[in-house]
């Protein structure tokens, strides 16, 4: 178990190295000259040359890379060209809304999708199954922003039930924090709920045909025990994998959702950075998000060992 854990953690190093190389190359293989962007429209060629020397852009690429990595290791992600502040600070300031949205969406999807998927599989072919799957297809085929605007129109603007836009920190006011999360979570989460419910259903259907399920029924066990212990525990590995993939996909959806609901998160930071071609910020966001992916993957691999005793090394 511990050997497996250490091996998995060590395997993160090459992955993150590749990510670092790619992120570094973004700056050096792109058509824009970062020095020119920083210098602005009115700058002379001499000004640009000055800035280039200041940033070390005139030195050999491999030296720049190692210096850059050395700074990364110390937690220095560079400074924003436009906001002229450390990228790490900018990201940390924006991370709470994004993380809150990602977590609440994941919880919402899992809590809703698992029971629905299990129920649909158990009642396969019945009207319950058909109704659940029809709703899932519907939810799956609407884009996030459409659901978002629909919800804002209905629940927030028409009936005034929930705040329309914005974000309140949990440290400031926990109940308003939650109220502001409801609509974005639903908007973002429906697609993942649909995906996960369908996945759960098909995995469970397959497992319910396994010989060991017949054995469980041959023992005279009641349905909940057959479904929730014998079937669901076997379905856990594919389900957890889908949850993980869902979290990864979520990041794309977060950017859209943050725009629709005017949430000041990492998604908004990214859009602004791309619009301004603020390369240090773009690089910083990609690094942090990649690190997050790798962490999620690691956590998922570790959960496998909890659910499936055959996976040990």
């Amino acid at each position: 178990m511990w050997g497996y854990l250490i091996r998995r953690i060590l395997a993160v190093i090459p992955v993150m190295t590749v990510v670092a190389v790619v992120v570094f190359l973004i700056l050096h293989l792109n058509p824009d000259d970062p020095a020119a962007i920083i210098a602005g429209d009115q700058a002379t060629a001499a000004d640009i040359e000055n800035i280039r020397r200041q940033l070390g852009l005139d030195r050999p690429v491999y030296i720049q890379f190692f210096e850059w990595v050395a700074r990364l290791v110390r937690g220095d992600l560079g400074s924003s060209i436009f906001l002229e502040r450390p990228v790490l600070h900018l990201i940390l300031e924006r991370v709470e809304p994004t993380l809150a949205l990602a977590i609440s969406t994941t919880i919402f999807s899992v809590v809703l999708a698992l029971p629905l998927g299990v129920l649909a599989a158990w009642k396969a072919g019945s009207w319950i199954d058909q109704a659940i799957m029809a709703v899932a297809v519907l939810a799956f085929s609407f884009p996030v922003f459409l659901i978002g605007y629909g919800l804002v129109q209905g629940l927030a603007l028409e009936w005034d039930l929930l705040p329309v836009q914005g974000f309140v920190s949990i440290t400031e006011d926990p109940s308003r924090f939650l109220a502001h999360l409801v609509l974005p979570t639903i908007a973002l989460g429906l697609v993942y709920t649909a995906l996960l419910a369908r996945m759960t259903r098909s995995t469970m259907l397959e497992i319910l045909n396994e010989d060991y399920i017949r054995t469980a029924r041959a023992k005279g066990l009641a349905n909940p025990r057959v479904l929730l212990i014998h079937a669901l525990k076997n379905a856990a590995v594919p389900i957890v994998t889908t949850i993980g993939v869902g979290i990864a996909l979520l990041i794309g959806g977060v950017v859209v959702t943050e725009s629709v609901f005017a949430i000041p998160g990492v998604g908004r930071l990214t859009i602004d950075a791309v619009l301004h071609r603020d390369y240090p910020v773009i690089q910083g966001v990609i690094l942090v998000v990649s690190g997050f992916y790798v962490l999620i993957n690691l956590l998922i691999d570790l959960t496998y060992t909890v659910f499936d005793p055959r996976i040990r090394y």
């Binding site: 060991y212 054995t215 469980a216 041959a218 023992k219 076997n234 659910f307 055959r310």
Partner: peptide, 20 residues
């Protein structure tokens, strides 16, 4: 089932639940 009448299945390798 499993109480007054029980059954041993033909497939010993797949008839036990692998995760229990």
């Amino acid at each position: 089932r499993g109480n007054s009448i029980s059954m041993i299945f033909q497939e010993p390798m797949t008839s036990l639940n692998p995760v229990v």
